[in-house]
Structure formats: structure tokens, C-alpha cells
């Protein structure tokens, strides 16, 4: 008859729990958010906005800064600056668009309970 418990079972459970603690300690930042930078409607780059170092990307005259849980358009060569005025983005689904330069920045949403589109 098969045993209920052997010393190996203890080893297995201990390894699992240890692994869990280890992974928990090593896990990436909780919000693990990614933002997509699109140029002309095509994906240009995906960046991790939770990186502790600030990153800066300039494309089509638009300067995008990300890091520390935020992403924002710092400067743009366009006239109306709607994209710069959109301010700092940090929540899932938020986006900022520079239409004259055809650049957009959007924080990926996880799709759960999020609306499919936003009017406004």
C-alpha cells in the first residue's frame, strides 16, 4: 500500500515554499506596467514604466520620458502641445497622443473590466 507521507514529501513541500519565498522576493515591481509607444500607428517600442532609472526616447520630434511608474511626453515639436498638456500617465489604459507628429503613448491595460474605448 502506498504511504501517505515519506521524508521526500517534506523535501518537496519545503522546496516549494522556499521557491515561493524566493520568487516573491525577486518578483518584478507589483504594477509591472508596460507602455507602448506607437509611431504612425505602428508599434515603435514597448517600455517598462516601472524601471527605477528614467528613460528618454525621442522620435519624430516627440520626447517621451518614462520610469518610476510614469510615462509622459516631455516635449514635442508640434504647435498645440495637447500631448504635453496631457501630463504624466500612470494608470492602465491612459494614453497621450501627438497627432501632428503621429506619435502616441499608451499604458497597456490588462483587459479586465476595462472599457473598450473612451469617448472624450
Amino acid at each position: 500500500m502506498k504511504k501517505l507521507f515519506t521524508k521526500w514529501d517534506f523535501v518537496i513541500i519545503l522546496i516549494c515554499l522556499a521557491l515561493s519565498v524566493l520568487l516573491f522576493a525577486l518578483r518584478p515591481n507589483e504594477n509591472g506596467n508596460e507602455a507602448v509607444i506607437r509611431v504612425d500607428g505602428k508599434k515603435y517600442k514597448t517600455v517598462d514604466i516601472n524601471s527605477t532609472d528614467l528613460g528618454e526616447i525621442t522620435v519624430n520630434g516627440v520626447t517621451v520620458v518614462y520610469g518610476g511608474g510614469e510615462i509622459y511626453i516631455k516635449d514635442s515639436s508640434c504647435r498645440d502641445k495637447v500631448c504635453v498638456n496631457a501630463g504624466h500617465l500612470s494608470k492602465k489604459g491612459q494614453s497621450s497622443v501627438c497627432a501632428p507628429n503621429r506619435v502616441s503613448v499608451e499604458i497597456k491595460s490588462d483587459g479586465k473590466n476595462a472599457p473598450r474605448a473612451v469617448t472624450g
Binding site: 513541500i13 516549494c16 515554499l17 521557491l19 515561493s20 509591472g32 508596460e34
Partner: peptide, 16 residues
């Protein structure tokens, strides 16, 4: 997205 692996520690405990 690799974000799903954030679940791994919780799932390990639940699995035990």
C-alpha cells in the same frame, strides 16, 4: 506579458 509570473509565488503556496 511576463507579468503573469508575478502570480507564481502565490500559486506555489496554493499548490502546496
Amino acid at each position: 506579458s511576463s507579468a503573469v509570473f508575478g502570480y507564481a509565488p502565490v500559486l506555489l503556496v496554493v499548490s502546496v
